[in-house]
């Protein structure tokens, strides 16, 4: 049971990181479908730097920078040049796949240092709760702290209020004197940073190796999670654990030798995503209530 929960939390962490970033981005009404591409770039950047320098903090910074670089490209296209957000996000993913495969060609099948597990004095010794929650690497703690931080920021700070205002009525926010485009740039970059970090978690802790296309759709699952959670941070966490659970279940059933072919078990998380999306989206009113009103709409100060 303990081992199971530890694995679920590990599997949920990359989803949680990427989804929290995507949540904030969607809160300012920008839809960046390039999460998958940014995660791949983060994964290879983190892995390459960890392999060549052995310096893990530096590797994480590289992953963040890689995710932000792609996010910046997206921001220039959609916020400055007002390109179609859907198409630009797809471009990010296509480019990220290609670029990470090219850079990563030399890193397939080799090892890099992995993120260390850090026990928290006192807490880690608690029965049951200790090993489940407090025997992980720093990114797991960071992801959990980020849930609270994002929720606090969005709903308890003035800056969070401005963010939500921009997402729900960007023209009004603009008239009030807020720099809509500049703020969106910042949030999109934050989303890229979190996706990059999520990718680094995959290649430096979860797998931990580099293989081509190793994100395997997790970026898309993260986007689905944001909808599932109806743009609320705590529900993103619940959702991430749920998906972590489904992913673990698929692996666990393989290990147990359940007489279902491996390939079909591997399809389980994707089917699970569809199933959950269907359950959630059925209630169109609930989606409309929580959805940032301007989501995906272009904004230009000139009108």
């Amino acid at each position: 049971m303990t081992a199971l929960l530890v694995s679920v939390i590990a599997a949920a962490t990359p989803l949680l990181l990427a989804a929290l970033g995507a949540l904030l981005v969607e809160k300012v009404a920008v839809l960046n479908l390039g999460v998958e591409g940014m995660m791949l770039m983060g994964a290879i950047a983190g892995f390459a730097v960890a392999h060549s320098t052995g310096n893990l903090p530096l590797a994480l910074l590289a992953a963040i920078a890689a995710g932000m670089a792609l996010a910046l490209l997206f921001a220039v296209l959609t916020l400055t040049l007002q390109a179609n957000q859907t198409a630009s996000g797809l471009a990010l993913t296509i480019f990220g796949r290609g670029f990470s495969a090219l850079v990563g060609a030399g890193y397939v099948g080799i090892a890099a240092p992995t993120l260390p597990r850090i026990a928290i004095p006192g807490l880690s010794d608690l029965p049951f709760v200790g090993p489940v929650l407090f025997g992980h690497d720093p990114l797991v703690y960071f992801a959990l702290a980020l849930v609270g931080a994002v929720a606090w920021f969005l709903y308890r700070t003035h800056a969070g209020l401005i963010l939500r205002a921009i997402g729900d009525q960007h023209d009004a926010a603009h008239v009030l004197g807020y720099k809509v485009v500049r703020i969106r740039y910042a949030v999109v970059l934050f989303g890229g940073a979190m996706a990059g970090l999520a990718g680094a978690y995959m290649s430096l802790s979860y797998t931990p190796l580099w293989t081509q296309d190793m994100i395997a759709g997790r970026g898309w699952v993260a986007l689905a999670l944001v909808t599932f959670a109806a743009w609320r941070p705590f529900w993103v966490m619940i959702g991430a654990w749920l998906f972590g659970g489904i992913m673990y279940l698929a692996l666990y059933m393989q290990a147990l030798g359940v007489p279902v072919p491996t390939a079909l078990l591997s399809a389980l998380p994707y089917l699970g995503t569809i199933f959950v999306l269907v359950l959630i989206s059925r209630d169109a009113r609930r989606i409309r209530l929580h959805r940032p009103a301007m989501l995906g709409r272009p904004f230009s100060a000139g009108g």
Binding site: L73, V76, L77, L81, Q82, A83, N84, A87, S88, L90, A91, L92, I94, F95, G96, R97, G98, F99, A101, L102, A105
Partner: peptide, 21 residues
Amino acid sequence: SSAITGIFQGILLFCLLGSDV
């Protein structure tokens, strides 16, 4: 690496979306 194809395709789409402005 033949992965260069994906990069070219991605950059092409970026440039196209940018040029469309």
